[in-house]
Design a protein around this nucleic acid. Structure first.
Lengths: 121, 121
DNA sequence: ATTATCACTATACATTAGTATAGTACTTAC
DNA sequence: GTAAGTACTATACTAATGTATAGTGATAAT
């Protein structure tokens, strides 16, 4: 029984759809690291390249633009000399705090479970 | 001040590392949909291909194996005739419930914000 | 004078992820 | 006997993602 139950199918899609939406916004290797970096305070471009190990300028630039388009990050140019560009999390960006927190918690437990002491970052 | 503060750098990595671990396990377009499908009850292969729109047999097979290797999914072969293979979430698989729940909640809010009524799945 | 920092962009390439299509070997229903 | 379902695997391809390397034009420090 319950083979292809339409209620289950509906419920299933009701979960899958929004989870996909969320993961689309966060997709790629660098978006969450960038959000984490900004969660510790407003940052400049160069500072973030140092915060996030192994990220290239190209990736940081590209991903910051994506995040800006999605309203998670704000880019402010101060017209001092030399120019000074400041990135910060928007309020909307902060709405991801809980998601990131849960991911971190699970990741910590997972790491304890399958300890990989030789993995390098 | 606070340029390249080592405490911030350390804290930053303390977040990034486990979040990456988590996302490594959940990476790709299909793993979370598969976990969601199984969260509604044990399933057979063919049933899951119908649960998860557009997934191909190859992807389902491959991702199920990945999830099995990571201990999130259990595969049980019942030696009836014809064979009957049953997939289920392990207890460890269920430990992702909160993560998936948060992703869904955020995805729902995001969808409300940028309503995309024409997007098809 | 040379080097470094600032915030990037451009080009080319490599790797990874996902898709399309077909096929296996068996069984059951029409 | 034909089609459909069972649970997959194989091969070949495309698309998406990420990397490597270099360069810009301004300023500022050594």
């Amino acid at each position: 029984m319950n083979k292809d139950c339409p209620v289950t199918l509906e419920a299933c899609m009701g979960m899958i759809r929004p989870v996909r939406d969320a993961l689309d916004v966060l997709s790629g290797k660098w978006k969450i690291p960038i959000l984490i970096s900004l969660s510790f305070g407003n940052k400049r471009f160069g500072q973030m390249t140092r915060d996030i190990p192994k990220i290239t300028d190209r990736m940081l630039s590209k991903e910051l633009r994506d995040l800006e388009v999605n309203g998670l990050v704000q880019r402010r140019v101060h017209d001092s000399v030399p120019v000074f560009v400041e990135y910060s999390l928007t309020e909307y960006g902060h709405s991801l705090d809980k998601v990131i927190h849960e991911l971190r918690d699970w990741g910590v437990k997972h790491r304890e479970r399958y300890a990989e002491p030789d993995k390098v970052y």
